[in-house]
C-alpha cells in the first residue's frame, strides 16, 4: 500500500473538476459553501478584498480557525501559505489540510524561492499568469494550477488574460520546431520534456482552475468556456448581498457552462455583486507577486 504518491495528489485535483472552490473565513461560511455545492473550501482569515482594504502583511490563517472549518464540513479543506514560506506549509501539513495554496494573495515570504513542493506529502496548488510560470511551479511539484487573476477585485479581466495567455502559448509551442521549443524551455528555465508533454496533451498536464476576480455565474461559465477545469471564487460570494444564492448559482453555472438558457435562469435576481474595482486603480497588483 502506498500513500502520498503523485497519482493520489493529482487525482484529488481531478475530483475537483467541474466544481467551485470557495473562500470561507468561518465555520458557518464553510457550511453555507458546502450546502451551496462547493466541491472544496479554502479556509482563510480574510478574503482578498479585505486584505486589500486592511493592507499590512497577510499570513497563513490561525490553526484554530482551520480546525473549526475542518470540523464543520465533509468536503476537502484547503488553506493558503505565503509564497516561499515552507514552515507555514509544514504547519498546514501537520493540520492535515487536503490541499495547500501557495498564494500571491498573502504577502510573499521569500523573494528568491517558491516552496519545494516535492518535499511535502500534502499536494499544492499554485497560481500562474503565463505558461512559463505554470511550468516552473509544476517542476517544483505543484499538482494543481490556477490562474492568478486579480484577487479581491470582482473584476474577471486578469483571469481571462492569464487563461488566454496560457492557451495561446501552448498553441504557439505546438506549432514550433524542436529547436524553438528547446530555446523557449531554456529561456523559461523549465525542462524541455515538460514542454513536449504540454504540446502533446494540448493543455497543462495537471488540473487547471481559474481564480482571481470571478464574481458572477457568467464569469464562471466564461472561464469554463475558455477551457479551465473549474473555478475558485474568493471574495465574490461572501462579499455579495446574497451569498447563499450567488454561491449556488455559480455552482450551477460552472456545471452548465455551455447552456445559455440555464445561465440566464441562474443569473436572475442575485442582488448586489461584491464591491468591484478597476485594475488601473489598484495600489497593489497581487498577480505580480511570484515569478
Amino acid at each position: 500500500m502506498k500513500k502520498n504518491t503523485t497519482k493520489l495528489k493529482k487525482g484529488l485535483a481531478q475530483m475537483f473538476k467541474g466544481g467551485v472552490i470557495m473562500d470561507v473565513v468561518t465555520a458557518d461560511e464553510a457550511k453555507i459553501a458546502e450546502d451551496a455545492g462547493a466541491c472544496a473550501v479554502m479556509a482563510l482569515e480574510r478574503v482578498p478584498s479585505d486584505i486589500r482594504k486592511d493592507g499590512g502583511v497577510a499570513r497563513m490563517s490561525d490553526p484554530k480557525l482551520i480546525k473549526e472549518i475542518q470540523k464543520a464540513v465533509t468536503i476537502p479543506v484547503m488553506a493558503k501559505v505565503r509564497i516561499g514560506h515552507f514552515v507555514e506549509a509544514q504547519i498546514l501539513e501537520a493540520l492535515k489540510v487536503d490541499y495547500i495554496d501557495e498564494s500571491e494573495v498573502l504577502t510573499p515570504a521569500d523573494e528568491r524561492f517558491h516552496i519545494v513542493k516535492t518535499d511535502f506529502n500534502v499536494p499544492f496548488v499554485c497560481g500562474c499568469t503565463y505558461l512559463g510560470e505554470a511550468l516552473r511551479r509544476i517542476d517544483e511539484g505543484a499538482m494543481m494550477m490556477r490562474t492568478k487573476g486579480e484577487a479581491g477585485t470582482g473584476n474577471v479581466v486578469e483571469a481571462v488574460r492569464h487563461a488566454r495567455t496560457v492557451n495561446d502559448e501552448i498553441a504557439m509551442l505546438q506549432k514550433a520546431a524542436a529547436a524553438k521549443r528547446k530555446a523557449w524551455a531554456e529561456k523559461e528555465r523549465v525542462p524541455v520534456a515538460l514542454v513536449n508533454e504540454v504540446c502533446k496533451l494540448g493543455r497543462l498536464p495537471i488540473v487547471n482552475f481559474a481564480a482571481g476576480g470571478i464574481a458572477t455565474p457568467a464569469d464562471a461559465a466564461m472561464m469554463m468556456q475558455l477551457g479551465v477545469d473549474g473555478v475558485f471564487v474568493g471574495s465574490g460570494i461572501f462579499k455579495s448581498s446574497h451569498p447563499e444564492k450567488r454561491a449556488r448559482s455559480i455552482v450551477e453555472a460552472t456545471t452548465h457552462f455551455k447552456d445559455a438558457d440555464i445561465l440566464a435562469k441562474v443569473s436572475e435576481d442575485l442582488g448586489d455583486c461584491m464591491e468591484s474595482k478597476q485594475i488601473s486603480d489598484l495600489e497593489h497588483r497581487y498577480a505580480e507577486r511570484g515569478w
Partner: peptide, 14 residues
C-alpha cells in the same frame, strides 16, 4: 461511510 479513511494524507494506492 463517506470519506472513511480521513484526510488526503490517508488516501492510498493498493
Amino acid at each position: 461511510e463517506r470519506n472513511a479513511y480521513g484526510s488526503q494524507l490517508d488516501s492510498f494506492e493498493d
